[in-house]
Computed example of a mutant assay.
Amino acid sequence: MTTVASEHSEQAGPGTMAAVAAVDLVKVYGAGDTAVRALDGVTVGFERAQFTAIMGPSGSGKSTLMHCLAGLDKATSGRALLGGTDLTAQPDRVLTRVRRERIGFVFQSFNLLPQLTAEQNIMLPLDLAGRRAERGLLQHLTGTLGLTGRLNHRPAELSGGQQQRVAVARALITRPEVVFADEPTGNLDSRSGAEVLLFLRNSVRELGQTIVMVTHDPNAAAYADRVVLLADGRVAGDLAHPNQDMIAAALRDLAVVR
């Protein structure tokens, strides 16, 4: 079994250091004989200004955990904490506001509005929240992501890599407490994927951003500061400062144990 990294057991545990945390989180789909226990008492915290990857076999609960922590799905029991806010105790109208104002999202499928330009897609979360743009931040994001000359183009006029970079800028433009990235390189070629991952990592270093990424790709996870491993709805391991070899070995161990 993968060894839990001791230096993270205190720093990233649920508490004051965690940007987002699960406490004894349970998620059950269905009822009776057909019930599926996707999360089985998960307790884990994600430290501020850190890039964490969540990995595990298919059906391990990694996407369910992210959805509950992001307020996209309701847990059956336990707590999902964003800072001091227990998302499991909030009504839908509050969750909508929290997702808009405090959380950023990057999805595998980009989720850009086709009728809007790249700049309009980036600015959409601020427009919905009635907030002014930080022009310096917009210029930094679009310049660093190589989008300066593409801001007036619509998604259909952009490559897949460019569309995902627009999605990353959109996720960061509100300076959210945490960005959740769900297989952000799944639809990209290796070069475009590496560019997106490098920018996500640099956003932690340069902007103090907190990133939580779900991925099945050890190469993508190696960009993270930490990897949390799930199996059968439970935390099964925790790797600090991972590399591809460490991650591949940990995944092999999970497969053997299961």
Rank of each mutant, 00 (worst) to 15 (best):
Q11R: 13
S109H: 14
V196S: 09
A171E: 03
P125E: 00
L65D: 02
E183K: 11
R150G: 01
P114R: 05
V36N: 13
T64L: 04
V166S: 03
R37C: 05
H67A: 11
R79T: 09
E10A: 15
S9G: 03
H8P: 01
A5E: 04
V257R: 12
G32Y: 14
N202F: 01
P176R: 05
A194I: 06
A181L: 11
V196Y: 05
A194R: 10
L198I: 11
P125T: 01
M66K: 08
T142E: 06
G149A: 07
A156S: 14
R37E: 03
R191D: 15
A240D: 13
Q108P: 08
A194D: 05
Q90R: 13
L188N: 02
V204P: 02
R234T: 10
N187M: 13
L254N: 02
V106Q: 02
L112I: 13
K74F: 08
P184H: 01
K74Q: 10
Q11H: 12
N121C: 09
V212C: 14
L251R: 05
V256S: 07
M1Y: 01
K27T: 06
V23K: 10
A133W: 07
A53C: 14
N219S: 11
R79P: 04
D24K: 09
F180L: 14
P57E: 00
E119F: 02
